[in-house]
Write a protein that binds this DNA or RNA. Structure first.
Lengths: 98, 98
DNA sequence: CTCCTTTGCAACCGCTCAGTTGCACTAGAA
DNA sequence: TTCTAGTGCAACTGAGCGGTTGCAAAGGAG
């Protein structure tokens, strides 16, 4: 699953937000949220696949922490599209000025 | 459909990217892409619902143009999560320095 | 008016996805 | 070793989504 798709689900964004508050486990997150541990685990797997989260096995528990790098890809894409649009507006404006 | 979900689908991102290159219609886009006009139209409806696109009826054709404002929400959310993480790292670092 | 083009609406199909439940496995505690 | 807590795996369900097809409606061109 790519980064955009991973951020597409609201619950998954909430999970990522909580992970950003500090490394946690699926069980801990499930206690704070109205879904089962398995559901949280699936979301964490998706986030892991997207590279947004890092697994750290510590004994019998798995701790997840944020990996912020892929988020810059999102900002990059948004800027790309936004800039294309702005440049188009600028061109249109200069044409109108002539 | 919210902005994140709207950007979740690759085809829809491609549609938005092309719209950013200049206002177009569903029919024009369908000619450049390997999907039907109806599929493009559905994507444009989703983008419209997310506020990412503006409908302009001109006679019997409907022209879509980019609305970049909601994109700032995306960047805002990403920064929010990223900053929370960075601050946590900074706190951790200062604690280690002490 | 007549024909063609562009669009919208609705039904349908296939697939993916979010979520739950049940079970097996493993590592730490007593 | 025995019990318990934390995960993972697999199957299942329901719903939503991407995409197609068919048809009706409405505006422009002749």
């Amino acid at each position: 699953m790519d980064v955009f798709a991973a951020l597409g689900d609201p619950t998954r964004r909430e999970v990522l937000r909580r992970v950003a508050g500090g490394p946690t486990t699926a069980t801990e997150l499930a206690l704070q949220m109205p879904i089962s541990r398995q559901a949280v685990s699936k979301h964490l797997s998706a986030l892991d696949e997207a590279g947004l989260v890092e697994r750290t096995v510590s004994g019998r528990e798995v701790r997840y922490s944020l990996r912020a790098e892929p988020l810059s890809d999102v900002v990059g894409w948004v800027n790309e599209v936004g800039n294309a649009w702005d440049q188009r507006l600028a061109k249109l404006k200069s044409r109108l000025d002539r």
